[in-house]
Design a protein around this nucleic acid. Structure first.
Lengths: 245, 245
DNA sequence: CATGTCAATATGTCAGGACAAAGGCTTGAC
DNA sequence: GTCAAGCCTTTGTCCTGACATATTGACATG
């Protein structure tokens, strides 16, 4: 618990509490602080670094939210475990795979304007039959088909024409257009593959697929994207870390 | 934004920030504050209620974490959307269903001590072959089989003999024994049903099933439970709300 | 030996103030 | 008319200080 000496850069634009949290996280991940070990109390940690207790507390809170630390009143704060897999976040599969060092490859199957069906209209808060962008893509990893993705986007959100979606990824393009997604509702389920899905994903009809539907909302609470995706369950799964607060 | 008048009870043991958060949440859920609407700024809200700004800020943060509010620096804080389905939490299926007003019914298929296989040993941080409790249950809703649950628990965590697990639910029993689960890692996937699973869940062999594996850790970072579950995807799905912070 | 009490310790909550940074709006120069 | 500078509002970060409450362990008591 004397722990590695943390360094603070007060001239950096990075908030102090975040600098501390980052270094703490590294120390936990690389094993400098063992799981189960108690860290110093907030007051002395703050004093060591020349911070106020609320700032130190805020730094610790970041890691508590991530599930790496656990507070116990009257006792102290302990490391729960070192290896925390990345939890489900508001990112796209493209980001996920790129970050994992894999070589994703995307094939655009179809893109164009279509009238919204009942599902799409409800999720995007539009009237049924309204025009929406429809985008179907097939994602590969190592030449193997991994996911079939069908996205719907209101036409007034962004223009999808003449965009190289095979390269950039949908979410990256939306970000570039100034669309900021803040909240999303996801629903994860399973079902058998249709004939078309089977052909594209190289599975037989009826083979189990992992499905995910996601509706994403921007700053203003406007629904900006609805996606229905199907994954090959032998190649993909969702991992998440739950924290009881 | 003048908003409903909130009431504070300073003699209550419930923290002030939590009282405010609760009443705010109710106002959002019942539509008193419409989605997209901006709420008052933190300073004046705090002044209205006779609170300090940090306390008011903490109250708002609770709802930001839930995905109901979105902050924008220099602009204000907005309601994103009213209806937030419960996100995935550190609770059991039994709790989930009870809360939903359904009538869950559980059948214990098998319970006893077994040697840990490779998976179980790794997840529970035990040596292979060590004795663990094995508990297989089948859960029904409205007489329909919904989930097949297989849990493993280290023998030194709790005694599972002579417990009516059909009634109480596993997690409730663990809570009663003083086991507090703080963090859990989940992995959600899909696969085809085995013959045995098909028989119990009344599906044919190879029918798509939604699967979830969960390892739960207690305060000390000790793995206290590992579960492999299979759900009928026509009756169950995982919903979660993601928030970008 | 069991049990209740008390003190030490650590986190939980709350107040009040200060300045920084970002977004939106107005104003002014060109 | 357009674009940039500057002002205002609002949230973001950080400080100091205080008291409340839960946990643990030592100690006294039955």
């Amino acid at each position: 618990m004397p722990g590695p000496r943390f360094t603070l850069d007060r001239s950096s634009p990075v908030p102090l509490y975040f600098q501390v949290a980052e270094q703490f996280e590294r120390a936990i991940l690389d094993g400098s602080i063992a799981p189960g070990e108690r860290i110093d109390n907030e007051v002395s940690l703050a004093a060591d670094l020349g911070l106020s207790r609320p700032t130190m507390r805020q730094a610790i809170q970041v890691l508590v939210d991530k599930g790496m630390l656990v507070r116990k009143r009257g006792v102290g704060t302990q490391v729960v475990h070192g290896k925390i897999r990345r939890s489900v976040e508001l990112t796209s599969l493209h980001d996920d795979l790129s970050a994992a060092g894999q070589q994703p490859h995307t094939e655009v199957i179809a893109v164009g304007k279509v009238p919204a069906d009942e599902d799409v209209a409800r999720e995007l808060q539009l009237s049924r039959g309204a025009d929406v962008w429809s985008l179907e893509r097939l994602r590969f990893v190592d030449k193997q088909p991994l996911a079939l993705m069908h996205n719907f986007i209101p036409v007034d959100v962004v223009d999808l024409d003449a965009v190289d979606l095979a390269e950039t990824g949908l979410y990256a393009h939306l970000r570039d257009c100034g669309i900021v997604m803040r909240v999303a509702r996801q629903r994860i389920g399973a079902r058998g593959a249709t004939v078309d899905e089977g052909r594209l994903l190289r599975e037989r009809k009826g083979a189990p697929l992992l499905t995910m539907q996601r509706t994403a909302y921007d700053n203003a609470g406007r629904a900006v994207e609805y996606g229905r995706h199907a994954y090959r369950p032998d190649l993909y799964a969702f991992e998440l870390t739950l924290v009881d607060r």
